[in-house]
Design a protein around this nucleic acid. Structure first.
Lengths: 365, 365
DNA sequence: TTGAAAGCGCTACCAA
DNA sequence: TTGGTAGCGCTTTCAA
């Protein structure tokens, strides 16, 4: 009571209202107009409102710090400005690049992105889709490899069907066999090309690091690689194929396992993803082997860090960010409900596969 | 007409309703109960409903593929299960690690995360916060360095104030000087410690790669580093300080610039973030210099890839994922509205600073 | 150009 | 244990 002139303690800033977000009614009242008019001013149809009123509404809104209740708008309009994105993990450069693409495209379209992490669990994935559906997003974009033999497949399809029937649009990234719009990577073909290129370089003795757990992506890449090799009459010994977690850690573990079993003349290790390949390189190094020299390494994806490791990683380029952009594009288009868009991949030979006709490779070592 | 027995074409799946998401009314009707009862069954208070009814409601919901309209719930309940996260970029391992932490904590609390990307633009940031506020999230978590001299500061504070007054909770990560709950990194102290450690190793001639544009984080880290050096009577020549974009690319550019100016006896380059440091290492390598040997490099953050590059990067550890977890914790607590939580940092000496008493360092280069 | 009023899908209170 | 009903904040006819 000693400081202020009045009894009621004044509040700072524009938001004088206190304890409650300002509503459209508040704005309308403050501006001396009806809710309808205020609403008209605050979105499109400002043209049908007298200037003076419009100005007063705008002023009142600013004064009160008004922010329209998106949920209320959604419910009144019957539609939202939201897009839902489901990834396996944010941390992984593969997904974060895709997410960057999606976000960028969404932004350009004035949409808000809601992201959920399913972490390689089909059950979790299903549950997430169910929840996300409740947000009535314009689209649900699902990334992450399908898992063979998972029994949630039908439930997922059902969920998506219901969503699509109600006007939502479903886009899958790198998932095959699900009857929805899909941005697809040619995992098999890319790996096959890679195998050919490497065999062409003169490599003959290979090992493969792949992911377990029925991950479709891993299986396709392995298959393509093996088939490509077979064209050169090269087979891979069972002992030289090791399964591990689809992550950097997994790559490390797999490389260690390979070393334990005895590399035994293996010239090149193909890991089904760059993340795994990079893990493997580090593990090899820790085991006293120089990647690219004692043992060549190749990956798949061409994530950003692939060029920061030494030697730079030979891999198959996947336009990750584009994947995201395309997915949003597909989501917003009104074409066939189950169109498939293939993005193209290409082999990039770098220092990690040593017999490389590239001058700079020698400066490194 | 030849195939089906009846005239109307049947639709696949459980979602027989067609063209419209099933509503609670649909479910209630199908189950032969009132909306109120259906609502009770579908959330908490199932205990106060007769078993038979409950079962029928559940069945009907499943049959119709019912997914509650989250916006409607939000509006009826007056609260949401949403948390908003604003980052500068998804692609950047710094932010994606934080995002992983936030997401994990949110999941545990049954919250949905909405993510927006502000990309180093204060204006965009402000606009995003404004929009996000409309979602009435339980909390808004903002990451990314404050930018000195940006004139959006007051507007941002105002926005947050209004939001908080209405019951929202604001959490800042690594932003200083804003009157809200903050999870803070000791940028200055960490960098100072690093400088001491490096000087202790015997380094005397330094260069610094920092970010321009008034980025507070960069300034603090630079300042700490310089002050730490000064304790050893070491000064850094102006010519040895270069500003660049706060990104991998920026790091590359800065390193090139340094080489252009002539390294001239520089023993160690400190980059204000690992992302920049890694870019710099790659650029040095491309210029024919071996990082860790011809020139030592140190960074800040200890992002994942820091141990995948060669030589491994000396840096200051910041518990990125924890930052995210703590932020959610703060967001959900009802302590003081402007508490500051410091996470601790620590220096990690690795191969990129060569005079390192670590045996394995020799196996590498 | 304006305002009254009818919803949108849901929750929660109250009475039965 | 139930159902009727009054909102929640907004948009959008429909008349005036």
């Amino acid at each position: 009571m000693e400081d202020g002139p009045a009894a009621s303690p004044p509040r700072r800033g524009a938001a004088v209202s206190g304890e409650r977000q300002a509503t459209l009614r508040d704005v309308a009242r403050a501006a001396g107009v009806s809710q309808a008019t205020a609403s008209r001013v605050l979105n499109g149809s400002i043209r049908n409102v007298r200037q003076g009123n419009a100005a007063r509404v705008l002023a009142a809104a600013a004064e009160l710090g008004y922010a329209p209740h998106l949920s209320a708008q959604a419910i009144a309009r019957g539609s939202t400005n939201t897009v839902a994105l489901v990834v396996s993990g944010v941390d992984d450069p593969y997904f974060s690049s895709i997410a960057a693409g999606v976000t960028q495209a969404a932004e350009a379209a004035g949409l808000i992105v809601t992201m959920a992490v399913a972490g390689r669990s089909p059950e979790r994935e299903l549950q997430i889709v169910r929840t996300l559906r409740g947000m009535r997003p314009r689209a649900i974009i699902l990334t992450g490899s399908r898992i063979d033999g998972s029994d949630t497949r039908d439930a997922l399809v059902e969920e998506f069907d219901a969503y699509r029937d109600a006007g939502g649009s479903v886009v899958l990234i790198s998932q095959h066999d699900l009857p929805f719009r899909t941005v697809s990577i040619d995992d098999y073909g890319g790996a096959r090309q890679l195998a050919r290129a490497l065999a062409g370089l003169g490599y003959r003795r290979f090992a493969v690091v792949c992911a377990g757990g029925g991950l479709r992506t891993s299986r396709d890449r392995c298959g393509g690689f093996m088939d490509g090799l077979r064209e050169f009459d090269i087979d891979i010994n069972e002992q030289r194929v090791v399964e591990a977690e689809f992550s950097r850690r997994g790559g490390c573990a797999a490389a260690r396992e390979l070393v334990r079993r005895g590399l035994d003349g293996t010239e090149l290790v193909f890991a089904v993803s760059d993340v795994m390949a990079i893990g493997a390189m580090t593990a090899f190094r820790d085991a006293g082997l120089v990647p690219g020299q004692d043992v060549a390494v190749a990956g798949f994806d061409d994530i950003g860090p692939a060029v920061d490791v030494v030697p730079e990683l030979t891999t198959v380029t996947v336009p990750l960010r584009q994947l995201g952009l395309r997915a949003m594009e597909l989501a917003l288009s009104d074409d066939d409900a189950s169109r498939i868009v293939q993005v193209s991949t290409s082999v990039v030979l770098r220092g990690s596969t040593r017999r490389l006709p590239r001058p700079r490779a020698d400066d490194r070592g």
